[in-house]
Nucleic acid binder design. Structure first.
Ligand code: FES
Ligand code: FES
Lengths: 140, 140
DNA sequence: TATATACCCGACTAAAATAGTCAAGTATTA
DNA sequence: TAATACTTGACTATTTTAGTCGGGTATATA
């Protein structure tokens, strides 16, 4: 049960952005430097964030990315979905009628993992970007 | 954010066991057949469960494994810990003072991931083996 | 006491996922 | 027109996962 860097960086980068005036573009280069994330990797991530309409891009010199919504309204679940990093706790195909064992019924633990899935997603559903910022004394 | 088979199988196998008389040994071969889990993989898993005193072994013909405690008292967190599959949400070393970026301070998202870590572990802490069994109508 | 059953244990490996990099662009502004 | 910054697809090294393999040892029962 591990969180991957793609999700972690996506949130980190967006959190970085939301500390700056929301209407002026923030360049990936700056985020890369401040947060020590590979620029090329960030580009890959932001392409997805853009496609999923979480940010919009401003090309050219002095360009960068701009948040499309107030940080208060950007839920972590949206971000995760955008970089398509889903929570996967069950062993079986989610829609299939078959179990993880190939048998026709769901296995004895299926319900448990399903519950865990919901539980975790609930966390992401109830957290937004601005929650990250209102902790006491944040710099860097 | 994905659950691996080791943890999933460990819980599945123990849940299987706890449906049988608790004092007579259950062989891995039987579990393997009922739950469609590779026997050799199960052996690997049970070695750890044994070392961590969740089960004890009975060697020889008619042998198998026996739960060391009532299923009611076996928390999922114990099982996960036994097969050493930890939850890892932060990018940094947990005890280190350094951040995931190599800098001297923790990153802007650290607190969030730490909270998530606690949140997930809380789930495992509050579930035990017997919770898996009391759902209506369980066979296979 | 022979034989089958079942646990014991370390080492090994194929395949998949992760965490990036690279190359070759295009658009915009100063 | 030079510099900045986004765009996109393909590629790759490394790590992790999900097992397998081989060669044991202990015990029950026929
Ligand atoms: S996890 Fe869905 S059937 Fe086993
Ligand atoms: S996750 Fe701990 S410092 Fe970034």
């Amino acid at each position: 049960m591990k969180l991957n860097t793609k999700s972690r960086y996506a949130v980190m980068a967006l959190a970085d952005m939301s500390k700056f005036p929301l209407d002026s573009p923030v360049s990936l280069r700056d985020i890369s430097l401040r947060q020590s994330i590979s620029l090329l990797y960030l580009e890959q991530i932001f392409l997805k964030l853009k496609k999923n309409e979480i940010v919009k891009s401003v090309r050219g010199s002095n360009g960068g990315y701009v948040l499309r919504k107030d940080p208060k309204n950007i839920k972590l679940s949206e971000i995760f979905q955008a970089v398509d990093q889903k929570v996967k706790t069950v062993g079986c195909k989610k829609d299939s009628k078959k179990g993880c064992n190939g048998k026709s019924a769901k296995c004895i633990t299926h319900e448990l993992w399903d519950e865990l899935d919901l539980y975790i997603n609930n966390f992401f559903e109830n957290k937004n970007l601005s929650d990250l910022l209102m902790t006491k004394e944040r710099k860097n």
